[in-house]
Amino acid sequence: MNETIQLPPLREKFFRRERRSVPAARRFAYEVLEGWGLAGTDVGDDALLCVSELATNALLHGVPPGRHFLVFLRYDGHVLRVEVHDSGPGVPRVAAGRDGGGRDEGGRGLLLVAALSDKWGVRERELGKVVWCEFAWPKG
């Protein structure tokens, strides 16, 4: 008998400023999604890719040395919300004018987040910012 363990509707975890934190954030998100019964669904797969992209952006652009970033997941039975909090300055934006054929690889992560999620955005916090995305589930 395969039972889904129901996790609380809110989960969060801090990660260090180091390269191995991106796959660790993805594993954390997978375990949470599995507990909510969303792992292996289209929305779960899309959310995992967005966690990877947002964690990578935080690591590369938003987390000063000696600081951490926070991955926050919430699911209320209708909307899955993914947030990545960091303490860096600036507001990330989808790069304009990308033709997809250039050699520059920067700016594509947020294009993926925008394409995969139902909504996404950035909000300021006292120190840094929160980049978030949402997925409606179940669909239809």
Results as ranks from 00 to 15, higher is better:
103 R>I: 07
69 F>I: 04
74 R>W: 00
131 V>S: 12
83 E>C: 07
75 Y>H: 13
62 G>A: 08
107 G>A: 10
113 V>F: 04
90 G>K: 11
118 D>E: 11
73 L>K: 01
131 V>K: 06
61 H>N: 07
61 H>I: 04
60 L>R: 15
47 A>K: 02
89 P>T: 11
122 V>R: 10
115 A>Y: 08
72 F>Q: 14
135 F>S: 06
122 V>D: 09
93 R>W: 07
45 D>Q: 13
49 L>E: 14
106 G>P: 00
49 L>M: 14
125 R>N: 01
72 F>L: 15
105 E>R: 12
49 L>T: 14
138 P>V: 09
79 V>W: 10
120 W>C: 11
73 L>T: 01
30 Y>V: 02
124 E>K: 14
83 E>F: 00
56 T>C: 01
56 T>I: 02
27 R>C: 00
91 V>W: 07
36 W>A: 02
129 K>L: 14
75 Y>S: 03
84 V>P: 01
116 L>P: 00
122 V>L: 09
25 A>G: 05
116 L>H: 07
88 G>N: 06
90 G>Q: 12
62 G>T: 03
89 P>G: 12
51 V>P: 03
119 K>A: 14
31 E>L: 14
123 R>F: 00
32 V>A: 13
57 N>Y: 07
62 G>M: 10
90 G>E: 13
54 L>N: 04
110 L>C: 05
127 L>R: 15
107 G>W: 04
80 L>K: 04
133 C>P: 00
